[in-house]
């Protein structure tokens, strides 16, 4: 997994790309830190360039959402396609994290 961040009209956009799995725990910790340190109300996690995700990867999204929520930030997901879209749909993730 690779990630990039940018501020767009007051929102933090986090772009994840590649494959998000168990092996990305360390790297994802920096993503959570970036989200926690950002001075915004809304965090958009863009998954358009993410090609696959495993259960640990879904867990990381839940963790990021939890941390953001505890700081009063809204976290949203967008752009899922292919395998990622299927997993998100199957697990009804939209009941836990808003999806644009």
């Amino acid at each position: 997994m690779e990630y990039g961040t940018e501020i767009d009209t007051g929102r933090l956009i986090v772009t994840l790309s590649g494959i998000l799995t168990f092996d990305d725990h360390e790297k994802f910790r920096s993503v959570v830190t970036v989200i926690a340190d950002s001075d915004v109300d809304t965090v958009v996690v863009d998954l358009a360039a993410l090609t696959m995700i495993d259960s640990a990867g879904i867990g990381m999204l839940l963790l990021a959402n939890d941390r953001a929520g505890k700081q009063g930030k809204n976290l949203r997901l967008r752009g899922m396609s292919g395998h990622v879209a299927k997993v998100v749909e199957m697990s009804k993730l939209e009941q836990l994290i808003p999806i644009d």
């Binding site: 879904i58 839940l62 749909e89 199957m90 697990s91 009804k92 993730l93 009941q95 836990l96």
Partner: peptide
């Protein structure tokens, strides 16, 4: 399909 267990 169904909400994953342990989250809500």
């Amino acid at each position: 399909g169904g909400l994953i267990l342990g989250c809500s």
